[in-house]
Amino acid sequence: MDEDCIFCKIFAGSIPSKKIYEDEDVIAFFDIKPMAKVHFLIVPKLHVPSLKECDASHQALLGKMLLLVPKLAEAQGLAGFKTLINTGREGGQEVFHLHIHVFGGGPAGS
């Protein structure tokens, strides 16, 4: 856990979130700045700054996260969806804790 990380603070309960899933390894919650009608994040509880820092020891966790995507998307009523993993500042990453964005249902606000 990183004391300064917003996602770690969400896991700890010091920052509220609108959770849609949680287990011992990951949490999923709606993005606070949605870019689509449905926009949620899947985040590992293990603090890993980005996909670039992952190695073979993270394989099971990464697989678990990816396999959750279609299950959680279906639970949110999405027949199709997009996924995005921003990696590094140059890759558009804003929160330096690995996470998968899941989008669907058309643009937010439409």
Score class of each variant (00 low, 15 high):
Gly88Tyr: 01
Leu46Trp: 00
Ser14Glu: 14
Lys45Gln: 13
Leu68Gln: 10
His58Tyr: 07
Leu68Tyr: 11
Lys19Ala: 12
Gly104Thr: 03
Leu61Ala: 07
Phe103Trp: 10
Gly91Glu: 10
Lys9Ala: 11
Val48Ser: 00
Leu67Gln: 05
Leu62Ser: 12
Gly77Arg: 07
Phe81Gly: 06
Gln93Leu: 02
Gly92Leu: 14
Lys52Gly: 03
Tyr21Trp: 04
Ile42Leu: 06
Leu98Lys: 00
Asp31Asn: 13
Val102Arg: 00
His47Ser: 03
Ala79Val: 04
His39Ser: 09
Ile20Asp: 02
Ser17Pro: 10
Val69Tyr: 06
Glu22Ser: 09
Glu53Val: 05
Lys64Gln: 15
Thr83Glu: 14
Leu78Gln: 07
Glu24Asn: 06
Ile42Lys: 00
Lys18Pro: 01
Pro16Glu: 07
Pro49Val: 05
Ser17Val: 12
Ala12Arg: 08
Leu61Glu: 13
His47Gly: 00
Pro16His: 05
Gln93Phe: 03
His97Lys: 00
Ile100Trp: 05
Ala28Pro: 04
Val102Asp: 10
Leu67Trp: 04
Ala73Asp: 15
Leu61Asn: 07
Glu74Tyr: 12
Phe81Tyr: 15
Gly63Asn: 12
Val26Asp: 09
Lys37Asn: 13
His101Lys: 06
Ile100Val: 14
Glu94Tyr: 01
Leu72Ala: 03
Ala79Ile: 11
Ile20Val: 07
